[in-house]
Simulated assay, not measured.
Amino acid sequence: MDNTIQTTLTHEQIRHYDAPKDCLKGKNILVTGAGDGIGRVAALTYARYGATVLLLGKTTSKLEYVYDEIEGFGGAQPAMLPMNLESATQTEMQQLVNLIEKEFNTLDGVLHNAGILGQLTPLEMYDVDTFDKVMKINFSACFTLTQSLLPLLKSAPHGSVVFTTSSVGTHPRAFWGAYALSKQGVEGMSDIFTQETQNTTNLRFNCINPGATRTNMRAHAYPGENPMSLKTPEDIMAGYVCLMSDDSIGVRGQVIDLQPKQI
């Protein structure tokens, strides 16, 4: 670990980060669930700030659309990495790592954005197959992919891993079932990775809770809610950019709530 002086930003500063132009220039950032919603907007935003974005998702046509959007505004040429996290094996993830190493040499950041809601029902009645699917995509795949990517991330000057959590992960709530449990697990994973690496590498781990945001997942969870009352993914990107920038190299093991007064 180098002797760079690391200053810690407050959560408020992260939420309202005023990103310098090209603050992500030269960085290679992998975004899971990059085909739509927050993942798509994060990928576009990272590219606008100079990053080379690696687009991971299960639907190739959606990745192609984001790819074209980035090329359309002159961003660095992105890469498409089609992968279904529900069925991906550790071998497939290692093949992904080998491809990234061959094409990009190193990896500066990962945004674990992919996730599914599952059922909103009592645990007593929760479908076991759905439970397994939610835990695989939201939790187990995050672990396996992170573990596989660690050598590449450690080779970066200041690697950053950002997990996506939720208020029901920080404070589990009745009827949120596997989704709440998966997010609680993600927060614990980030904490353990932080403890195990903080004295040996320049790699940092944090969680982001985007809060109530205008996405398809939110609409499924709250079908009676007026989506126009919610912030858009574009409205909350400051925190996402901050945690990938070198201004946040002193921020470790945090759960950043981007809308602390929201559900």
Rank of each mutant, 00 (worst) to 15 (best):
N3C: 06
T8K: 12
T8I: 12
I14W: 00
H16G: 04
H16N: 15
D18L: 11
D18K: 15
L24H: 04
K25Q: 15
G26A: 04
G26K: 02
N28I: 01
I29K: 08
L30H: 05
T32S: 12
T32M: 08
G33H: 08
G33W: 04
A34V: 09
G39S: 10
V41T: 15
A42V: 11
A42K: 03
T45D: 14
A47M: 07
R48F: 01
Y49I: 10
G50A: 02
G50S: 01
V53R: 02
L56F: 04
L56N: 06
K58T: 06
T60R: 14
S61C: 00
L63R: 08
Y67V: 06
D68C: 04
E71L: 11
E71T: 01
E71F: 00
G74M: 08
G74D: 11
G75R: 01
G75F: 01
G75C: 02
A76M: 00
A76V: 01
Q77Y: 04
P82L: 09
N84V: 03
Q90H: 10
T91F: 13
M93Q: 15
V97K: 15
I100K: 10
N105L: 12
N105E: 10
D108Q: 09
H112D: 06
H112V: 00
Q119C: 05
L120T: 12
T121W: 10
P122C: 01
L123T: 12
M125Q: 14
V128N: 07
D129I: 12
D132H: 10
D132L: 02
D132E: 13
V134P: 00
F139A: 14
F139N: 14
F139R: 00
S140R: 15
A141E: 09
F143C: 09
F143A: 04
T146Y: 09
L149D: 13
P151R: 14
S155G: 14
S155A: 15
P157Y: 05
H158V: 05
V161K: 04
T165K: 02
V168G: 01
G169I: 05
P172L: 03
R173A: 13
A174P: 00
F175H: 10
F175K: 12
F175T: 13
G177V: 03
A178T: 03
A178R: 09
Y179M: 04
Y179R: 03
L181D: 08
S182E: 08
E187L: 09
E187S: 03
M189H: 03
S190I: 01
I192F: 13
F193N: 07
T194I: 07
T194E: 06
E196W: 01
T197D: 01
Q198S: 07
N199V: 00
C207L: 07
P210M: 03
A212L: 15
T215V: 04
M217H: 07
R218V: 07
A219N: 09
Y222A: 13
Y222L: 08
Y222T: 07
Y222M: 14
N226Q: 07
P227I: 10
S229F: 02
K231T: 04
P233A: 10
P233H: 08
P233R: 08
D235K: 05
I236T: 02
I236R: 08
A238I: 06
G239F: 11
Y240P: 11
D246Y: 11
D246L: 11
I249V: 14
G250V: 10
V251A: 09
R252K: 15
R252L: 05
R252I: 02
Q254P: 05
V255L: 15
V255P: 00
V255I: 15
Q262R: 13
